[in-house]
Design a protein around this nucleic acid. Structure first.
Lengths: 214, 214
DNA sequence: CAAAATTAATCAAACGATTGATTAGTGCAA
DNA sequence: TTGCACTAATCAATCGTTTGATTAATTTTG
């Protein structure tokens, strides 16, 4: 019925997300995706219009889940630093585990051509960026953060550090001395470590009231 | 003659580097590269054996120039923080201007398959990573940096922040309010700004002696 | 309710275009 | 003439997409 159809579309999107993440938009083929999903090739075009339509559908499915999170944090009545700390915790939780989608985003964003596609992706990513920017600017405005912090570049650090860890698995694994695909290590060791590090780093740079008690 | 041949090969590599950077390995076609380079398509296979051979040749040409820089800084007789500051300055100078190769590196590193290729790239990148790690560990050991700094994740921040700025041009341009391709803005505004920011950020996180005079 | 009509879902097959690669042959310099 | 640099033509393979036909499900009709 309708539910089966949605399940099948969702299943195709699951497979497409993984294949696109592993091979990139160009590297992945519609035959490969349909084959792994166990559906006829024509179904991809039937459901999504085209390869690009499928690609965008993979993205659009993820948008909403990313948006709500940050907006809720932004609207809480806590100070800017606590908001930022919450964002960091949530980001690390969400993204380090299922990182293939993030890799997909970064890879396609770095392409110069493909304007329609990357414009759409940019638009999506910017939603999250603005949410963080709002928090940082709030902290600057009310004096909790230093007046001369570079908000834009601080955002580059937040997202860039995270991206680097998940985006270059070979580098990260060599650097950290663990297989970054090891689920147990990821959950028990890396996640709290990244959370602690990110908060320490940003607190040192941002927060005006540098109490030594920490 | 031989010199002409080398020049032509170098010209092909120049074009290939740009096209690969813009479109990725899969997105770029040998016809496109040979067309833009003004040579016959068969010349690519004649010189480099295959598309993958050309791709690797693009990388191998760049390796040596990256290595020498950091090693020289590491061997200077200045303290760890000054070494790090020098590394940052040099990195920003070198990489922000001609960023297409860095984009190429990051994109291909994030691919899960293509092991032979990404292994070679990983090996290259790690040379730079270890050089920075040595400097950080030196600073921790002699007490100039805090004992509990996370050296590995600090490296992720250094490279990650830089990558984010150059790697996601649409994001960066929207975030910074300038076209990141604008050469004049890049040189006069962004470069000093990134240098200042990176040093402030890392000093706040790393350096034990927090004098208020800065 | 049951038969007919309509729509949605699915399939195998084939489309033209483009891919990376190879061939056979040309021209030139030593 | 022999060997090398180079080209035009062509190769099989694969690409994303479209097609026409078939089955399954739903709606309409008598």
């Amino acid at each position: 019925m309708d539910k089966d159809k949605i399940d099948k579309k969702d299943h195709i999107l699951d497979v497409a997300e993984r294949v696109f993440s592993d091979l990139g938009f160009d590297g992945a083929s519609t035959r490969m995706i349909s084959g792994e999903a166990g559906v006829n090739m024509a179904m991809l075009n039937y459901y999504f219009g085209s390869k690009e339509g499928l690609f965008l559908a993979v993205f659009e499915r993820k948008i909403s889940s990313f948006q709500a999170l940050l907006q809720n944090i932004g609207n809480e009545s806590i100070d800017a630093w606590d908001k930022l700390a919450k964002c960091i915790d949530n980001y690390v939780d969400r993204i380090i585990v299922n990182n293939c989608f993030q890799k997909l985003i970064n890879r396609e964003l770095s392409m110069s051509k493909r304007s329609e596609l990357s414009d759409k992706i940019t638009e999506m990513v910017m939603i999250n960026v603005w949410e963080i920017a709002k928090i940082l600017e709030e902290g600057v405005k009310n004096g909790q953060f230093f007046k001369d912090v570079d908000v834009q570049l601080a955002i580059a650090t937040i997202f860039g550090t995270k991206n680097y860890i998940i985006n270059a698995p070979n580098i990260s694994s060599t650097l950290l001395g663990h297989d970054i695909k090891d689920e147990k290590y990821l959950e028990e060791r890396l996640k709290p470590r990244v959370k602690t590090y990110m908060k320490r780093l940003l607190k040192a740079y941002l927060v005006n009231d540098n109490d030594n008690t920490k």
